[in-house]
């Protein structure tokens, strides 16, 4: 097995694992980036959402070999100090409950706002398909609107 190289949060990484290992587990177990969460393993819940070359992606079903040469951003790479507008909006609305889904929710929201800076409720419904078992959807919606308005 040749090592697989890619970029995570601006840093070059090289890992030597089975090529079908999902990106999620490389991030969590090999690179120690545990902010990205495991919820289902079958692209159903969105807890594992990261950006690959800017696109929101459920990392639990992305084999690491397909990530070679790509640019991955995780929750840890969003800002150094929780200053990303989406993080600030999340804090202002006190969105998280247990918090487990929130890395994925935030990464999904960031991607939505990058393509749709002023999303309607229908846009939010369509883009935000991640599960929150604590039911924070109402606050997520409010926080996305708040981030869109400049927090």
């Amino acid at each position: 097995m040749a090592p697989i190289e890619f970029t995570v949060n601006g840093r070059r990484q090289s890992v030597d694992v089975a090529p079908d290992t999902p990106l999620l587990w490389v991030l969590r177990d090999n690179l120690g980036l545990t902010g990205t969460k495991f919820g289902c393993g079958i692209a159903q819940c969105g807890s594992c959402t990261v950006h690959i070359d800017g696109a929101p992606t459920r990392s639990c079903v992305i084999g690491i070999s397909t990530v070679a040469g790509k640019r991955v951003t995780t929750i840890e790479g969003l800002s150094r100090d929780r200053s990303h507008p989406v993080q600030r909006a999340w804090i202002a609305e006190d969105v998280p409950q247990c918090g487990y889904c929130q890395s994925g929710q935030i990464m999904a929201a960031v991607a939505l706002l990058e393509t749709t800076p002023n999303p309607t409720d229908a846009d939010i419904d369509a883009a935000m398909t991640n599960i929150c078992r604590c039911g924070t959807y109402q606050r997520i919606r409010t926080a996305i609107h708040r981030a869109a308005e400049g927090v």
């Binding site: 990205t36 929750i75 993080q87 999340w90 969105v95 890395s103």
Partner: peptide
């Protein structure tokens, strides 16, 4: 617990 729940820590 909100701050550590928005940055993955």
């Amino acid at each position: 617990d909100t701050p550590p729940k928005v940055d993955g820590t």
